[in-house]
Computed example of a mutant assay.
Amino acid sequence: MICRIWHGITPRAKADAYARFLEQRAIPDYRSVSGNRSVAVLRRDEAEVTHFMTVTHWDSEESIRAFAGDALLTAKYYPEDRDYLLEFEPQVRHYVVSAFESSG
């Protein structure tokens, strides 16, 4: 299993709207791909900005390719991200999961 982590930063004033966008647009997109095991969106508010991290778990690199394309470590962005994000980090991070437990 592979854990894929993406990080983005929004202005604090747009954080609630971006959180809704991720819930309504990004999470269903991740979940629609065969081989996606889970999605979590993490949020940390600071004074002027909010950090978001999406943490997803995938069965294989093949599953990730179905979601993100052949450039596995290239971040996938949606056109709407331009309305929210302060920067566009070019890459995500992948980790091989050495232990995983789910209650479900």
Rank of each mutant, 00 (worst) to 15 (best):
residue 10 T to C: 08
residue 78 Y to T: 00
residue 94 H to P: 11
residue 55 V to P: 01
residue 42 L to A: 13
residue 4 R to K: 13
residue 93 R to P: 08
residue 48 E to S: 11
residue 25 R to G: 00
residue 8 G to D: 04
residue 104 G to C: 12
residue 48 E to W: 09
residue 8 G to V: 00
residue 78 Y to G: 00
residue 22 L to Y: 01
residue 78 Y to D: 01
residue 71 A to C: 13
residue 24 Q to C: 01
residue 86 L to N: 03
residue 65 R to W: 11
residue 67 F to Y: 15
residue 39 V to F: 15
residue 84 Y to M: 02
residue 95 Y to G: 07
residue 15 A to H: 01
residue 34 S to E: 15
residue 25 R to P: 00
residue 19 A to F: 01
residue 79 P to R: 02
residue 95 Y to I: 05
residue 26 A to R: 04
residue 55 V to T: 05
residue 100 F to N: 10
residue 18 Y to W: 03
residue 12 R to K: 15
residue 35 G to I: 12
residue 27 I to G: 00
residue 44 R to C: 08
residue 23 E to A: 03
residue 37 R to W: 14
residue 32 S to C: 06
residue 100 F to I: 11
residue 60 S to K: 11
residue 87 E to C: 05
residue 96 V to N: 13
residue 45 D to G: 06
residue 41 V to W: 05
residue 74 T to P: 08
residue 36 N to D: 13
residue 18 Y to C: 00
residue 1 M to V: 10
residue 41 V to P: 06
residue 70 D to W: 04
residue 63 S to H: 15
residue 38 S to P: 05
residue 14 K to W: 01
residue 24 Q to M: 02
residue 2 I to E: 02
residue 104 G to S: 14
residue 16 D to W: 00
residue 91 Q to Y: 08
residue 61 E to I: 03
residue 17 A to L: 03
residue 93 R to N: 14
residue 52 F to H: 05
residue 33 V to W: 06
residue 9 I to H: 06
residue 70 D to I: 06
residue 33 V to G: 08
residue 75 A to D: 07
residue 9 I to L: 05
residue 54 T to G: 08
residue 1 M to R: 08
residue 66 A to G: 15
residue 74 T to N: 12
residue 100 F to M: 14
residue 96 V to A: 13
residue 22 L to F: 00
residue 99 A to E: 12
residue 87 E to L: 10
residue 56 T to N: 03
residue 47 A to I: 09
residue 60 S to W: 05
residue 28 P to T: 13
